[in-house]
Design a binder for these strands. Structure first.
Lengths: 214, 214
DNA sequence: TATGTTTTGTGAAAGTTGTAACGATTGGCT
DNA sequence: AGCCAATCGTTACAACTTTCACAAAACATA
């Protein structure tokens, strides 16, 4: 699967461009966008090559037209509906984070095993018991799922999701999910990320110490 | 910076091995570990090459000794202390997620601008006002920070962190942080991740549709 | 119109990450 | 002891990603 990094950055560019257009900016050069995105100008140009929108030399990119191209490239025309699985601490935080932000990509249903939560509306999102999963997924035409359940429950849940039309999963459970190859899974392993930071912060300290010696 | 992915997987291997050793397993082959980690056996062997621990043919790896090698490779001997910046919904979820899990990598202080939170203890972690940042960082010898504040506040905060000895940042603010090159930053951009999933779930659907035609 | 400067798009090189192939070593079995 | 199958470490290769380098295009200015 090529392009994965590029697509990620394209979504970032879009956000940055939205800020700019809100501020009244009409044109933007690759280095200006690059500075805001924390990458190089060449990378911006190369990424934008992928969506086929051509800027013009000396003037850069027309912000509105570029946004339109990005929208065309990134978004499903009718929008996509997302389900949240697991309404614990993390799930609730994700709900409050995502709700109302992206009209074309909204969380339309949440699920949890806790019967206390059934029927409640949390941050504007209805919470269902897990045995309604199949019905709701199909009724709402949900193709994307966010998995924020304990590790032991994740695989079984993923199987049910895939069997009912989910094509992409954002997985916060700290185990790898086994799914058919045509299903896209993005893993966010918080423990792994924190340990990575810890490791490389130590590395950094060592390197600077070593450099001082030379 | 090479090895980034490898270090990430090494932390995963360690978690899986801890489960195994708890279950009484003494030896493990590369395939077995690979299956649990969701990668290939070759990759496991290659990753383990990096830490210099040799398994033995036919018997695989001695779980306890391998864990010891991983600990030696991954961990700072005296442990590392972590600060959490921003105790909103996401911050609280992260606190509850991390607290008490990793003795060698524990969140020892939280900070928030909300004066209501000052002095409170949340999930076992003391919450400080932001103007105590410098003092607490130094007093507790904190080298790792988790940034879970709004985007507008993130850069200024990062500057203060770096100036006071923080060497690695786990950044949840959806903007790139400008920091000196020796500081390690791991970005977790939830919006980007979700949009990526949405994009590739659409891709997957297209590809399977196309394949059906052929 | 000619010239110079800035910026773009893109082919080629470099770097990083994942995969495959293979000799070497070990334990089990006869 | 001698052979076989399983597993390991490592080198070589392939795929993906980023960076470098430069021609072509557009605007400004004279």
């Amino acid at each position: 699967m090529a392009l994965e990094r590029t697509v990620g950055r394209l979504t970032l560019y879009r956000r940055l461009l939205n800020e700019q257009v809100a501020g009244g900016v009409e044109n933007l050069r690759s280095h200006q966008l690059a500075a805001r995105a924390g990458v190089t100008a060449v990378q911006v140009r190369r990424d934008l090559m992928q969506i086929g929108y051509d800027g013009s030399p000396k003037r850069g990119y027309d912000v509105k037209k570029l946004l339109e191209s990005l929208r065309h490239f990134l978004d499903e025309p009718g929008g996509q509906r997302v389900a949240l699985l697991g309404v614990g601490n993390l799930g609730r935080a994700l709900l409050s984070y995502f709700i109302g932000r992206r009209p074309h990509l909204s969380i339309v249903a949440a699920f949890d095993t806790d019967p206390q939560l059934s029927g409640r509306v949390i941050y504007g999102c209805r919470c269902h018991p897990l045995d309604e999963l199949e019905d709701v997924l199909k009724a709402q035409d949900i193709t994307v799922a966010i998995v924020a359940v304990p590790a032991v429950a994740a695989q079984e849940l993923a199987d049910r999701l895939v069997q009912n039309g989910v094509k992409g999963i954002l997985n916060f459970a700290p185990i790898p999910l086994a799914v058919p190859s045509e299903i896209f899974v993005e893993n966010i392993d918080l423990t792994m990320s924190l340990e990575k930071v810890a490791y490389f912060s130590r590395e950094a300290a060592c390197e600077t110490a070593c450099e001082r010696k030379n």
